[in-house]
C-alpha cells in the first residue's frame, strides 16, 4: 500500500498547532520543516507556502532550505524510505556498491519510488555515524557496516 500523500486539512491543522505552540518561530524553519515532513511525508509547494506564511518568511527562502538539505523531499517517499549515506567515510567504505545493489534489487533509480509505493531510494550526506560506515537508513532504522550481500536481507525485512 502506498503512503497517504493527501494534503488534508487535519494535517495542516496539526502543523499549525505545532507552529503556534512555539514560543518564537525565529530561527526555527528547519525544525518546522522536519515536523511538516513527518506529518505530510513530503514537502510539496502548498506546504512550503503555508510554512512561509506562518513564519513570515519568503517562499523562496523556505524553498532554498528545502532544496539545500537532501533530507527534505518534495516528492512523496515510499512506505519504507531507504537512504544510503554517501558521505566521505561511507563512500570510501563502499557505499556506492551498496547503492548499486539496491538499484538492481528494487529496479528503481536514486530519487525514485517503487511502483507499489513500498520503497523509495535516496542518497544522503553524512549522518554522523561514520564509525558504522557504510550506513543505510530505512525509515528511522539504521543499518551499519552494510555489505552488498546484506541488501537482499534488508529489503526482505519489509
Amino acid at each position: 500500500m502506498a503512503v497517504n500523500t493527501e494534503l488534508t486539512v487535519e494535517k495542516f491543522n496539526e502543523l499549525e498547532q505545532y507552529i503556534d505552540s512555539m514560543p518564537s518561530t525565529k530561527g526555527e524553519l528547519i525544525r518546522v520543516l522536519h515536523k511538516a515532513q513527518g506529518i505530510f511525508g513530503f514537502l510539496p509547494q502548498e506546504v512550503q507556502k503555508f510554512i512561509a506564511k506562518k513564519l513570515d518568511l519568503s517562499t523562496a527562502k523556505v524553498f532554498g532550505v528545502v532544496s539545500f538539505y537532501s533530507y527534505f523531499t518534495m516528492e512523496p517517499k515510499g512506505e519504507n524510505p531507504i537512504a544510503i549515506c554517501m558521505g566521505t567515510a561511507c563512500y570510501v567504505r563502499g557505499a556506492e556498491k551498496v547503492q548499486d545493489a539496491f538499484i538492481k534489487e528494487l529496479g528503481i533509480k536514486v530519487g525514485e519510488t517503487t511502483a507499489d509505493g513500498k520503497f523509495s531510494l535516496d542518497a544522503l550526506r553524512c549522518v554522523g555515524a561514520c564509525g558504522l560506515a557504510p550506513v543505510v537508513l530505512v525509515g528511522e532504522k539504521v543499518y551499519g557496516r552494510v555489505t552488498v550481500e546484506d541488501v537482499k536481507k534488508i529489503i526482505s525485512n519489509y
Binding site: Q45, Q48, L57, S58, T59, A60, K61, V62, F63, G64, S67, F68
Partner: peptide
C-alpha cells in the same frame, strides 16, 4: 531583493555545482 527591496523573490537554492540563486520552486 531580500534586504533592500524586501520583495523576497530570490534565494540561494541547491548545493555544490548546482547551487544557484532562484525564485521559489
Amino acid at each position: 531583493c531580500n534586504n533592500v527591496q524586501e520583495v523576497g523573490a530570490l534565494s540561494g537554492i541547491n548545493r555544490g555545482f548546482n547551487a544557484v540563486v532562484s525564485p521559489a520552486f
